[in-house]
Lab assay of single mutants.
Amino acid sequence: ITGDVSAANKDAIRKQMDAAASKGDVETYRKLKAKLKGIR
């Protein structure tokens, strides 16, 4: 179950990262990237 949750989280975070990148929001992008590392 835990694996599914983190996989879903990663997917959601990647989508947020894409949105931040397209807006040029480097700050948010970095925060999300750090979150991704924390999940692993």
Rank of each mutant, 00 (worst) to 15 (best):
I1W: 12
I1Y: 11
I1L: 09
I1H: 12
T2V: 11
T2F: 12
T2S: 12
T2L: 08
G3P: 09
G3N: 11
G3T: 09
D4S: 08
D4F: 05
D4N: 10
V5D: 08
V5G: 10
V5H: 09
S6V: 10
S6L: 12
S6I: 11
S6D: 11
S6M: 09
A7N: 07
A8Q: 08
A8P: 10
A8Y: 05
A8I: 11
N9L: 15
N9T: 12
N9Q: 13
K10M: 14
K10E: 14
K10Q: 12
D11G: 06
D11N: 10
A12N: 08
A12W: 14
I13A: 01
I13D: 01
I13F: 02
R14I: 09
R14T: 05
R14D: 03
R14Y: 07
K15N: 04
K15L: 07
K15W: 03
Q16D: 03
Q16W: 06
Q16F: 05
Q16Y: 02
M17P: 02
D18I: 15
D18H: 13
A19T: 06
A19R: 06
A19E: 14
A19Y: 07
A19V: 13
A19N: 05
A19F: 08
A20D: 00
A20S: 02
A21I: 14
A21Q: 07
A21W: 15
A21M: 14
S22I: 10
S22M: 12
S22W: 03
S22Y: 03
K23F: 04
K23Q: 08
K23V: 11
K23D: 05
G24F: 04
G24N: 04
V26D: 14
V26E: 13
E27A: 05
E27K: 05
E27S: 04
T28Q: 12
T28H: 05
T28N: 06
T28Y: 08
Y29A: 09
Y29E: 13
Y29F: 05
R30W: 06
R30Q: 13
R30V: 05
R30H: 08
K31S: 02
K31L: 02
K31P: 00
L32W: 03
L32R: 02
L32Y: 03
L32M: 03
L32V: 01
K33Q: 08
K33W: 06
A34N: 07
A34Q: 07
K35Q: 11
K35R: 06
K35T: 04
K35V: 11
K35N: 02
L36V: 01
K37N: 10
K37P: 03
K37G: 07
K37A: 14
G38W: 08
G38N: 10
G38F: 07
I39Q: 07
R40P: 10
R40H: 10
R40E: 14
R40L: 15
